[in-house]
Amino acid sequence: MSEYSPDVVRKLEEKANQMRQDIVVMVGAAQSGHPGGSLSAADIVAALYFNVMRYDVKNPKWADRDRFVLSKGHASPVLYAALAEAGFFPRAEIITFRNINSHLQGHPDMKKLAGVEFTTGSLGQGLSGAGGMAIAGKLDKKDYRVFCMIGDGESEEGQIWEAAMSAAHYKLDNLTAITDWNGLQIDGPNAEIMNVNPLPDKWRAFGWNVIEIDGHDFTQILDALSPESRVEGKPTMIIAKTVKGKGVSFMENACDWHGKAPSEEQVKTALAELCA
């Protein structure tokens, strides 16, 4: 494992914390949206946008930028929080989430918001799209990387396994996917609704370079996302064990908070916890 300076880790912790606050504020203001899977993904998305990925907010379509596709599009608040923090749009606008005519649509819309790389929300499609971007990168002799986050419930979609096959077949070593392995979907725990396990073995069997990490440990996250963790000729899958609702005690591991908005009171409690 690499050593990262305390400053690097502290900065990411601060970014992730700010993003979690923004997620709570957004979903609270909209009185609609998906806090659980946004909070579980916050540390990984923070590491991507504030350490790993190469991009230019002034030039969102820069041809050499790294790409991030949020295949589990219902977690749009985590993406919007990162894009606001990175400067793609003013943070003050986060409270327009899910408002009429807002560029912060219920699910990420690439035609409405700069920085959104692929339109998602119908589960199972984003990983194929990310594979397409990776193939294009190879054809164009570009060295950009493509990142894609999928959900564990989303992994029940057959199309995820079609993408698993095609990305390995086309040797997409410029593609790194992350599974937000929080163990929960809408109707209950994956294990009870539709068992997706053993995930690491499945991805290995499909020909991927598989890395298992704690998705809330920045050292492990940075190691897994670093270019050195890649294997030539194989796409990489990071299976990140996470806690759904992470950072807000009453949302943690509570299935109910998948797609429910906190009351004004609950927003206050959550923010107080995050700011403590």
Binding site: R98, Q105, G106, H107, D109, T120, G121, S122
Partner: peptide, 16 residues
């Protein structure tokens, strides 16, 4: 059975 037809999908937006 198709639930939340048409505009009743409301805040979920275009994908839904």
């Amino acid at each position: 059975v198709g639930t939340a037809p048409g505009i009743t999908a409301g805040p979920n937006g275009g994908t839904h």
